[in-house]
C-alpha cells in the first residue's frame, strides 16, 4: 500500500515534509489505520503520534486521514483509503508539535472556558443529587464526547477564530451542562456565551457532525444554545 505521511521535527526540520512510503499489508484482513501506523513505527521508531486505548475510547489518536478527521484506531484502512492510497496528516488548524502530534492547548482552553463541571450552589443532600430518568435522558448524545478534537479541527470557524469561537466540542459540553437538571448556573453560563463569537460564529455547516467518531451532533446542541439565548433575550 502507498502511504503519504506528514513529517515534522521542529529540532531538525525547517519546514514540514511529506514522506511517500510503501507498506506490505497482511492479506485478507482489513487493518485499522492505527495498525498501519504501528507497522510503520516498527520500521521507523521516529514517527510520532498519540495513541492509548486503541479502541475509540480515549480519543488520543485523532488525525486527518485522506482529508477527513477521525480516530485512527477505529477507522478501517478500506474506509479511509478506498482507492488504495492512504494520506496521513495531523488534525488541521492546531499547531504541530511533531509529525501527527498537535498542540491541543487552544482546544482545551475553549473547553475550560465553558466550565465543564456541575455548578450547584444549593446544599448537597445526604446521599446524592437525584435526577429523574427523563432529565437524565436529556444528557444522552452530549456526555459521550471524548474530546478527541476531530470536530473542532474540522470547523473553518474554529480555524479562523480558535481563540474566540468556542468550537463544536466545547459547545456540545456547554449544552451538556445547560441541559442538566442538577446545574443551577444556567443564567451565568448563557451570559458567558452571548457575545458575537463564542456561539454565533457557527455557520451550521455540520462538518463537526460528519466527522464525529462517536456519532454525536454538536450542531444540534449549538442550535439549542441559540434558542436558549434568544428566548432569554426576548
Amino acid at each position: 500500500m502507498q502511504i503519504s505521511l506528514y513529517r515534522f521535527d521542529p529540532d531538525t526540520d525547517e519546514s514540514p515534509r511529506t514522506d511517500s512510503l510503501e507498506l506490505d499489508l497482511p492479506e485478507g484482513r482489513d487493518l485499522m489505520v492505527l495498525d498501519v501506523l504501528e507497522l510503520l513505527k516498527a520500521e521507523d521508531p521516529s514517527i510520532a503520534y498519540r495513541r492509548s486505548c486503541r479502541e475509540g475510547v480515549c480519543g488520543s489518536d485523532g488525525i486527518n486521514m485522506n482529508g477527513r478527521n477521525g480516530l485512527a484506531c477505529i477507522t478501517p484502512v478500506s474506509e479511509a483509503a478506498p482507492r488504495g492510497k492512504l494520506t496521513l496528516r495531523p488534525l488541521p488548524g492546531l499547531p504541530v508539535v511533531r509529525d501527527l502530534v498537535v498542540d491541543m492547548s487552544q482546544f482545551y482552553r475553549q473547553y475550560e472556558k465553558i466550565k465543564p463541571w456541575l455548578v450547584n450552589d444549593t446544599a448537597p443532600p445526604a446521599r446524592e443529587r437525584l435526577q429523574s430518568p427523563e432529565d437524565r435522558e436529556k444528557l444522552n448524545g452530549l456526555y459521550e464526547c471524548i474530546l478527541c478534537a476531530c470536530c473542532s479541527t474540522a470547523c473553518p470557524s474554529f480555524w479562523w477564530n480558535p481563540d474566540k469561537f468556542v468550537g463544536p466540542a466545547g459547545l456540545l459540553q456547554a449544552y451538556r451542562f445547560l441541559a442538566d437538571s442538577r446545574d443551577t448556573a444556567t443564567a451565568e453560563r448563557l451570559a458567558a456565551l452571548e457575545d458575537p463569537f463564542s456561539v454565533f460564529r457557527c455557520r451550521g455547516i455540520m462538518n463537526c457532525v460528519s466527522v464525529c467518531p462517536k456519532g454525536l451532533n454538536p450542531t444540534r446542541a449549538i442550535g439549542k444554545i441559540r434558542s436558549m439565548l434568544l428566548s432569554q433575550g426576548i
Binding site: 521535527d9 513505527k41 521508531p45 521516529s46 498519540r50 508539535v97
Partner: peptide
C-alpha cells in the same frame, strides 16, 4: 537499541 534520540515528543524513547 533506541534508534530515535530526538528531544521533541519522542514516543520511541517512551516506548
Amino acid at each position: 537499541h533506541l534508534a530515535d534520540k530526538s528531544r521533541v515528543f519522542n514516543t520511541a524513547r517512551l516506548e
